[in-house]
Simulated assay, not measured.
Amino acid sequence: MNLETLNHCSAQEATEAFMLCCVSERWCQRMVEARPYADFAALCDAADQHWQGLGDNDYLQAFEGHPMIGDVSTLRAKYANTEALASGEQSSVNQATEQVIETLARDNQRYYERNGFIFIVCATGKSAEQMLALLQARLPNSRATEITNAAEEQRKITRIRLEKLL
């Protein structure tokens, strides 16, 4: 897809495209209604503006679009080696140790139990060790603080997905 196609496709097709980037229905609706976009920068500006104007329930809906990384086998596969990482996003990642993987799984579960939603972080360019450090740093935060933190991370993820979409 390219920007011209996105600007001129049906509302249904545009919604489906935006849902690939973020599953907040309200955000997608606003993005569809704001078309056409002059260029990629305008699209990103609108994405940020519409994201900032949402409420906690919209953010929580967006977070539900991510799989929970809490199972050791999933984490083991994700951090097996640098070859498995998408598009060279992590250029100098060492293999994750079994201890790091198991701690990530345990702390992801603790985070979910504490906040009622999964740990959201823009993982691009981060090793398993860095992810664990971020998770552990955010574990003591209040739920309200974590909704804010996770919303900002989701915004970054959405931007990357918009780039990949076009």
Score class of each variant (00 low, 15 high):
47 A>L: 10
116 G>S: 10
33 E>W: 04
47 A>K: 03
82 T>Q: 14
113 E>C: 11
129 E>W: 02
83 E>M: 05
166 L>G: 08
115 N>Q: 07
66 H>T: 03
67 P>F: 06
50 H>Y: 11
10 S>R: 04
99 Q>F: 07
83 E>V: 12
51 W>P: 07
70 G>Y: 13
163 E>Y: 12
100 V>T: 11
139 L>C: 12
38 A>V: 01
80 A>D: 10
5 T>Q: 13
102 E>S: 05
56 D>I: 14
60 L>S: 05
86 A>Q: 15
44 C>W: 09
132 L>Y: 01
8 H>M: 09
112 Y>I: 00
96 A>L: 00
48 D>E: 15
90 Q>F: 08
94 N>M: 13
3 L>Q: 09
115 N>A: 09
166 L>N: 09
33 E>A: 13
92 S>P: 13
157 I>Q: 02
91 S>I: 10
72 V>K: 11
66 H>Q: 04
65 G>A: 05
26 R>S: 14
124 T>P: 06
153 E>R: 01
7 N>V: 04
128 A>P: 06
39 D>I: 08
27 W>K: 00
5 T>W: 14
144 A>F: 08
97 T>D: 04
138 R>I: 05
111 Y>P: 06
94 N>E: 13
92 S>E: 13
97 T>P: 00
105 A>F: 08
26 R>T: 10
7 N>I: 06
157 I>L: 05
77 A>E: 08
123 A>W: 04
30 R>K: 08
36 P>M: 04
25 E>C: 09
91 S>Y: 12
147 I>V: 13
